[in-house]
Write a protein that binds this DNA or RNA. Structure first.
Lengths: 134, 134
DNA sequence: ACAAATGATACTCTTGTGGTATCATTATAA
DNA sequence: TTATAATGATACCACAAGAGTATCATTTGT
């Protein structure tokens, strides 16, 4: 089970690399080389981040990407939700409505508690906090 | 993302049903009917539980399954690990060793903390505790 | 001996993850 | 002003895991 998928992971690294670059914009090719991520895959990821307004893009020759917000305002949870959808731990349980016996309810309650905790932890992680120790 | 997959969920319900049955053994067919779970799928699940020693099976006509341990000693985490493998939240991160920059390390640390919390929560859940409120 | 159960396996279908591949569009630098 | 180097938009593909089916062999109570 993975909390964080590959695309989210790559997104975090790419954003960190953009944040710590001295250049105004960084191209996908540059990032791909530096981070050793397949270029076409990284492009797809950057396009998604752009659509969500997390980074800004500049088209044309010598174009590229730059952050659209302060690293302190970019949350890990937000990135996860771009690539992995809304964070829920109990997907399958909730789909099986009128739960056949009341049994699963205490389970669901527990899982909801766990979910709340995990979400609060993930909310506290920003791009800035990940950069600090770099 | 699901913390608990369908087979684990079914296993919990089946065990609960066996535990609360007055009969000495309960057959897969009976359980499947009562819980509205596809019989062949449930059989596979019960066989797995049997192999792991969580339930005992009796073969032949009027055979079936019974618990092999006290419900207080059957842990949700144990059941999850039967069907979902050892519980880890950071699978994909750990696979990508010599992490290209130190960046991901604080992330990993955080995820490990979250993992520890979730595991401790899951460990505290037993079949008995799920049965109580039924 | 037959029916009703489990044991063991192998197969299928669908979805999600981790990518590729193309073509169109934009803009700058030569 | 035109070639080139970037992004935008899509469509596709391969593999693995999740969710379940299907068969056949074996055991045992009636």
């Amino acid at each position: 089970m993975k909390l964080i998928t590959r695309d989210t992971d790559y997104a975090v690294r790419a954003l960190a690399s953009i944040a710590s670059s001295k250049k105004a914009v960084v191209s996908a090719g540059e990032l791909a080389g530096k981070l050793r991520i397949p270029r076409p895959f990284l492009r797809k990821i950057l396009q998604a981040l752009n659509k969500k307004g997390i980074i800004k893009s500049i088209k044309g020759k010598s174009g590229g990407f730059s952050l659209a917000a302060d690293p302190k305002k970019i949350y890990l949870l937000e990135l996860m939700e771009v690539f992995q959808g809304k964070f829920r731990l109990n997907e399958c349980l909730l789909k099986r409505r009128p739960c056949p016996n009341r049994l699963t309810c205490p389970l669901r309650k527990k899982i909801s508690n766990i979910e709340r905790y995990v979400v609060s932890e993930l909310k506290s992680l920003t791009l800035a906090s990940l950069l600090k120790e770099d």
